[in-house]
């Protein structure tokens, strides 16, 4: 994809901002609208925009499919790991109150990690889905 200069320049400008916004949505989800799922989708959209503009191969070099595969599972395990950590601290599964000396602080901590797990899984699944769809047939999608 050599043409579409305006689109390429604009998306070069936009992709970092989109990723930054995804991180904002991820970590500001406790205070404003949003959370792990929305942040993951936005981050995945940034990866897809990169793949659309600069080619699938460049996107796969930046976000290797093997790493994405690992992250897909890692997010789910991070979520479950918070639950197991709660059990080890003497509470019930996914009972974040025992994670810290102060129950409210423990809840904050638990929600932060749980949402991070959701975000990681969603972003890597979205990117992987696009890579798989675009990887079939025409190579220049």
């Amino acid at each position: 994809m050599i043409r579409h200069v305006i689109l390429r320049v604009l998306s070069k400008l936009l992709i970092p901002l989109i990723m930054l916004f995804a991180l904002y949505v991820q970590f500001h989800g406790d205070y404003g609208p949003g959370g792990g799922f929305q942040a993951g989708v936005i981050f995945g959209a940034a990866i897809i925009l990169y793949a659309l503009m600069f080619g699938l191969e460049a996107a796969k070099r930046a976000f290797p499919p093997r790493v994405l595969e690992f992250l897909m599972a890692f997010g789910v395990l991070l979520y479950g790991g918070v639950g197991v950590a709660a059990i080890l601290e003497g509470g019930n599964f996914l009972d974040y109150s025992v994670l810290s000396h102060d129950p409210v602080h423990g809840q904050h901590l638990g929600i932060l990690f749980v949402e991070l797990g959701v975000g990681i899984t969603v972003a890597s699944v979205m990117a992987t889905l696009f890579f798989l769809f675009a990887g079939r047939g025409r190579a220049d999608v």
């Binding site: 989800g29 406790d30 205070y31 404003g32 609208p33 959370g35 792990g36 799922f37 997010g75 789910v76 979520y79 479950g80 639950g83 996914l94 974040y96 109150s97 129950p103 409210v104 809840q107 904050h108 638990g110 929600i111 749980v114 949402e115 797990g117 959701v118 899984t121 969603v122």
Partner: peptide, 25 residues
Amino acid sequence: DDIGVPNMVTAILASYRGYDTWGET
């Protein structure tokens, strides 16, 4: 008192309904 997170939706989804959200993930 329980969670102290201003966004109630996040609090319910991630904490009170943590099992469901894990299932969704």
